[in-house]
């Protein structure tokens, strides 16, 4: 479903993504695990037509995002890492706007929109302007919005950042269900070991723009002869993703959202 070959991205002299290759078969849940600045978001932006790669090839659903961006955009949905709501619109208007852009029929927009807003507990606030929401509420709305249409591939860039554990669980069970019932391919990035281990079929560990290894959590542990994904990660990259670091990002994101 997703094929990437020798993909690179340079910003001026800085190499953010360095010659990476991987494939994600249809229906798989695939995780990008890596520390800050590893190149996760940059890769996702290239796949989703928002950035032009410096080098390399890729296809989504057998379509080339560089050559045919418009057709590619029909195949995927995305939840961004950074804020992406219109704060001067209400929660419902944001949902509806998204539905129209993605050609979701009116009836489905209404039904699924209601179901999703209830799932993230924002249904009662659907008529409030988004700028009056807290950081976590905005994040929940973004998740709900991202799930409104059911694409072939769903990209989620650190979707659980800033979410409370309860909403995380709700979100993942919804996604797993979607993955099962509609064979949706799910590509997500994360800092959280447990999330990668619990949710993903396969994990790519990425650091400093390079993919260090790819495999299921079991395989990664076996490969490094370690007991936990955490230790495997430490052995492969030589560093820890500290909780502290993740928390900092959470805080930064909330700060940005004001």
């Amino acid at each position: 479903m997703i094929k990437v070959k020798n993909l690179s991205k340079k910003f001026k002299n800085f190499v953010a993504v360095d010659n990476i290759s991987f494939e994600v078969p249809a229906g798989e849940i695939f995780a990008f695990l890596g520390p800050n600045g590893a190149g996760k978001s940059t890769t996702i932006k290239m796949l989703t037509t928002l950035l032009k790669p410096s080098d390399g090839e890729m296809t989504i659903n057998n379509i080339d995002p560089v050559k045919d961006p418009k057709e590619t955009r029909r195949s995927f949905g995305i939840v961004f890492q950074d804020p992406s709501l219109d704060e001067d619109l209400t929660a419902w208007e944001n949902i509806n706007f998204h539905g129209v852009l993605y050609g979701v029929p009116k009836k489905v927009r209404k039904e699924r929109g209601e179901q999703l807003l209830k799932l993230v507990e924002l249904w009662d606030r659907r008529k409030s302007l988004v700028k009056k929401f807290s950081g976590g509420m905005k994040r929940r709305l973004e998740i709900a919005r991202g799930l409104l249409h059911h694409p072939k591939v769903l990209f989620l860039d650190e979707p659980t950042l800033g979410l409370d554990p309860q909403t995380r669980n709700l979100m993942w069970s919804y996604l797993k269900e979607l993955n099962k019932s509609e064979k949706t391919t799910i590509f997500f990035s994360t800092h959280y070991m447990d999330e990668a281990e619990r949710i993903a079929d396969r994990i790519a560990i990425i650091d400093q723009g390079k993919i260090i290894t790819i495999g299921s959590a079991e395989e990664l542990k076996k490969q490094t002869s370690t007991e936990s994904l955490e230790e495997a990660f430490l052995k492969l990259t030589g560093k820890k993703i500290r909780d502290e670091e993740a928390n900092n990002v959470d805080r930064m994101r909330k700060f940005n959202r004001r």
Partner: peptide
């Protein structure tokens, strides 16, 4: 918000 519109079909 621009991202949201630019990534849409």
């Amino acid at each position: 918000f621009l991202k949201e519109t630019l990534a849409a079909p």
